[in-house]
């Protein structure tokens, strides 16, 4: 597992450097190589997760490093799926570097990392069947998709600003069109919000199986519930209120920042 994770980290790093070079030169062949590298890294990381159970001391499900690794891996998988349909070269460098850090972090001694806000829940893992796994996977997938929405939103804001300042054509690195970025944002929100909702529901069910109640009132739960309510509002504004693309982009960035704090940050401060 460690070997695969190390290899994935190295491939992600190479893909990130190649993507930066490919965009800066610009060199389409190097960019294609970077995309392939991202795909190879995802395969290696999948192999790492598949062999996780063979470790003598398997890392805890709520270990922050493992959660971040799963999340970034899912983010890479979603992006690779998007790259089939859209030209999003600007997505590759940040994603490859985040995936590198996450994969590298996962290779450090398991269990020694900072726990998520859900750390106390480990006690009930054995007794709760597949609920803990479902919770971690669904919540990670939701975070990854909403992270992608945030990234698309960030690029949208950069591109929008450049167009408003009438400097768009002179920039060195070409970003996808506003329309493509907005579609990615919308798609990621459509995918991410239900996953996050399911992640929250399975988390509550896990708590019930462990402690006999659906709500414990921990900081992690409280902040994540706030984040979910915020996203519910964003989804409503987007699909019912016909929110403009720029506002949707800004919301996606702000929403993801809040969600990261709710899921990870609340664990750090508690």
């Amino acid at each position: 597992m460690i070997v695969f994770q190390n290899m994935a980290a190295a491939v992600y790093l190479a893909a990130g450097i190649a993507a930066v070079l490919g965009l800066a030169l610009p060199a389409p062949k190097i960019l294609r190589g970077a995309r392939l590298g991202l795909g190879l890294g995802a395969l290696l990381q999948a192999a790492a997760f598949a062999t996780l159970h063979r470790l003598d001391a398997a890392p805890s499900l709520t270990d922050l490093r493992q959660v971040v690794a799963v999340m970034s891996w899912l983010g890479v998988v979603f992006t690779l799926a998007l790259l089939v349909r859209w030209r999003l070269p600007g997505f590759v460098p940040p994603l490859a570097f985040v995936a590198f850090l996450a994969a590298f972090g996962a290779t450090l001694s398991p269990g020694a990392g900072v726990a998520t806000g859900n750390a106390g829940a480990e006690l009930g893992v054995e007794a709760s069947g597949s609920l803990p796994h479902a919770h971690v996977l669904l919540a990670s997938a939701g975070l990854a998709a909403l992270g992608l929405a945030g990234l698309a939103g960030l690029f949208f804001l950069i591109e929008h600003r450049a167009l408003k300042r009438r400097r768009a054509v002179t920039r060195r690195i070409a970003l996808p069109s506003l329309e493509a970025l907005d579609r990615v944002n919308r798609l990621a929100l459509v995918l991410g919000f239900p996953l996050l909702t399911l992640g929250l529901l399975t988390g509550s069910l896990w708590l019930e199986a462990r402690a006999g109640r659906l709500w414990s009132g921990s900081l992690h739960e409280t902040w994540t519930a706030f984040a979910w309510i915020i996203y519910l509002g964003l989804v409503g504004l987007r699909f019912v209120g016909h929110q403009g693309a720029r506002q949707a982009a800004a919301s996606a960035v702000a929403g993801f920042a809040f969600l990261v704090f709710a899921v990870v940050g609340s664990g750090l401060v508690s």
């Binding site: 054509v169 996808p176 069109s177 506003l178 329309e179």
Partner: peptide
């Protein structure tokens, strides 16, 4: 070129 930056 500008149109292509706005529309896919």
């Amino acid at each position: 070129d500008l149109a292509k930056q706005i529309f896919e």
